[in-house]
Design a protein around this nucleic acid. Structure first.
Lengths: 257, 257
DNA sequence: TATTCCATTATGTCTACGCATAATCGCAGG
DNA sequence: CCTGCGATTATGCGTAGACATAATGGAATA
């Protein structure tokens, strides 16, 4: 029963709440370039008349745009289209297993080494210094049987004591942690290196071949949870990042703000 | 209600609007792990009583959290702490000139080639097919005199006709475009390759050395604006990405909900 | 027992208003 | 002519209500 007024090319805009409609309208004007950076958008008061609604409704729309960084608001002066700042984009950092299976390839996993130890000097994982507290893991991810990435990981058992009991020979630590550690912060470092002997043999590459390296530190509050270094075969893997003014979470049809 | 209890360690919270305070409170509970994923957060009604404010105020706070992806809302059921999805992070993709000077190094730039041409078959920049329309640029970025990145770029003159007049021997095209092209979308591809002969000689590297490659396509609407491929010396450059639940734009003290 | 229907309930959206705050403009006075 | 003060004004923040919507649990019914 898709009749009605679905004569447009857009099939998924049934009735869209008003404040989202206002937001979308303004967003479209900005993205199309019709309103260039620096342009003053209509006052809330004007939009209020234009859409025949209360100011709070207009405010919600504009506040959301400001939150997304598309516009800047200055008291008394008005709201202005912001300068684009392309310097941030959303990087997709999928779980390797998920990524491989999503590409329709068969995922293989292999635990190479597992070691329990005390934190040493200069160890990247700082502990509240109590006894045995670190779990070192080395493992290999395969796609269609071919080595894809070599992963070296340190897990803080002080932060995640349950990890000591997990059989990481069967479960990739990344996947397990994602499901068992709530809401953390993380910092990533992406670089390219030439494979050393160890990497080359693990990844079935000639020595010196280019590899993509993703290093990640994950923490919550002051506690570092895990530090991981994933070395990908440069010829088999790449990362993808996307920039759109919506930001990473704000799907345009999001019910929130 | 807002009991005047500002004796905390936080020195930068003078009077923080109420809806931001509510948001911050909930956010803290989630990030600390006190409220794990799946936990039901208090109903708006409860928070209304707890903070002694109107429901709209609570709603603004919770809606912002939902927009940031920290919580999920289900009618009738309540609002729940969402599962963390680490797979997206904010990648800093600075203008190279800016990045180099920010590191306190001297920036050098050199235009290697400039060519005007018609779009060819399979060219990544699709045009509304009118005559001469593409500008090919090859240039080199230096840090402290040493080659840092080799950049190959195609600019669509149909989308940015002014670019034909610009002296790209003096201005890096990335910087110029940032300042002259408003609000676009972009997609990035990050990979590692071994330097071929041309890259090696331009970057003063041995052949086969590992390089970090950043490819970016930028468009607005249906028009591709520019396609760029930056090859960085792997030993001199890396990218940094950061994940925090605020999202990329939503600084916690943002005035917008 | 299984199924349908309805009352309950929490969120989604919106209105109409109010006060607070800060930036700008214009006017008056030195 | 320059300076400083106040009026104006747009945004920021918040209240107290209202109706709509959808999902849930339980009651009534087949």
């Amino acid at each position: 029963m898709a009749d009605g007024r679905t004569g447009e090319t857009d099939a998924e805009a049934p009735v869209l709440p008003l404040h989202q409609r206002i937001r979308a309208d303004i967003e479209a004007k900005i993205l199309s370039g019709e309103w260039p950076p620096g342009h003053r958008i209509p006052f809330e008061h004007e939009l209020t008349r234009q859409y025949g609604c209360a100011r709070m409704t207009v405010n919600k729309a504009i506040a959301a745009l400001a939150g997304a960084g598309l516009i800047e608001r200055r008291r008394r002066a008005g709201s202005f289209v912001a300068q684009p700042h392309l310097q941030s984009a959303v990087l997709e950092i999928p779980d390797i297993r998920e990524e491989v299976t999503r590409r329709g390839e068969s995922y293989g996993y292999e635990l190479i080494a597992r070691r329990l130890r005390r934190p040493g000097e200069g160890d990247p994982v700082d502990l509240a210094g109590t006894g045995v507290a670190l779990l070192d893991l080395t493992c290999l991810h395969r796609a269609n049987g071919r080595p894809l990435a070599l992963e070296e990981r340190v897990i803080s058992l002080a932060a995640v004591p349950e990890a000591a009991e997990v059989d990481f020979a069967a479960t990739p630590p990344g996947s397990w942690l994602l499901g068992h550690v709530p809401w953390t912060e993380a910092e990533h470092r992406i670089s390219a290196i030439a494979a050393n002997v160890r990497m080359a043999s693990a990844l079935d590459l000639p020595r010196g071949a280019a590899c993509l390296v993703l290093e990640r530190r994950t923490w919550r509050g002051a506690d570092t949870i895990t530090v991981v270094r994933q070395v990908f075969r440069g010829d088999l893997y790449h990362l993808v990042a996307h920039f759109s003014p919506q930001g990473p979470h704000g799907r345009p049809d999001s019910p929130a703000d």
